[in-house]
């Protein structure tokens, strides 16, 4: 696997102006650093794109998918916007809280899971939508949760 900076260099070439590569670069750096962006990751991206770490922080902190705190090995995000909410999203959230022994918005001490709620994932017709490591599970109901968690633990 090529080094982060060389891969960012490639991203950069896609765009007429190199600053446009900052989002893809931050996404990439986040993958490389276990799902979040520690300060050194921001420094890396800054170096590769001739930006300042502070600039990269201002960008990263604007977008929900870019994280500035450590995140569990598995990321579980339940959509609780109106359509999912009407279809029992809160019961799904609580089911995950029970099964994972985690309060939504927190990460397990052993770093295994992070549980959270998110705004509309664009799957309102297939409620409730649950994003697991950014892959969407559709039509999830509270009863499905134990099985899902088991599968994830395995």
């Amino acid at each position: 696997m090529a080094s982060v900076s060389t891969r960012i260099e490639k991203l950069r070439k896609q765009y007429p102006k190199s600053t446009s590569a900052v989002l893809p670069a931050l996404r990439l750096a986040q993958e490389e650093h276990g799902g979040w962006l520690p300060p050194e990751a921001l420094r890396e991206v800054a170096d590769a794109l001739d930006l300042t770490p502070a600039y990269c922080l201002s960008i990263a902190s604007f977008y929900d998918q870019l994280r500035l705190e450590p995140v569990g090995r598995t990321l579980v995000e339940v959509c609780t916007n109106v359509s999912c909410a009407l279809s029992g999203a809160q019961q799904v959230v609580e089911a995950f809280e029970r099964e994972l022994g985690l309060e939504a918005g927190t990460t397990a001490d052993d770093g295994s899971f992070t549980l959270g709620t998110v705004e509309c994932l664009g799957g309102c017709g297939w409620a409730t939508v649950v994003a697991i490591d950014n892959r969407h599970r559709l039509r999830v109901q509270a009863d499905d949760v134990p099985a899902i968690v088991q599968e994830l633990r395995a």
Binding site: D64, T80, A85, Q90, V93, G105, T117, E119
Partner: peptide, 12 residues
């Protein structure tokens, strides 16, 4: 049907 729904902003 929306009782207790936990929004991200409330979670934060």
């Amino acid at each position: 049907s929306l009782e207790g729904i936990l929004a991200p902003s409330a979670m934060h």
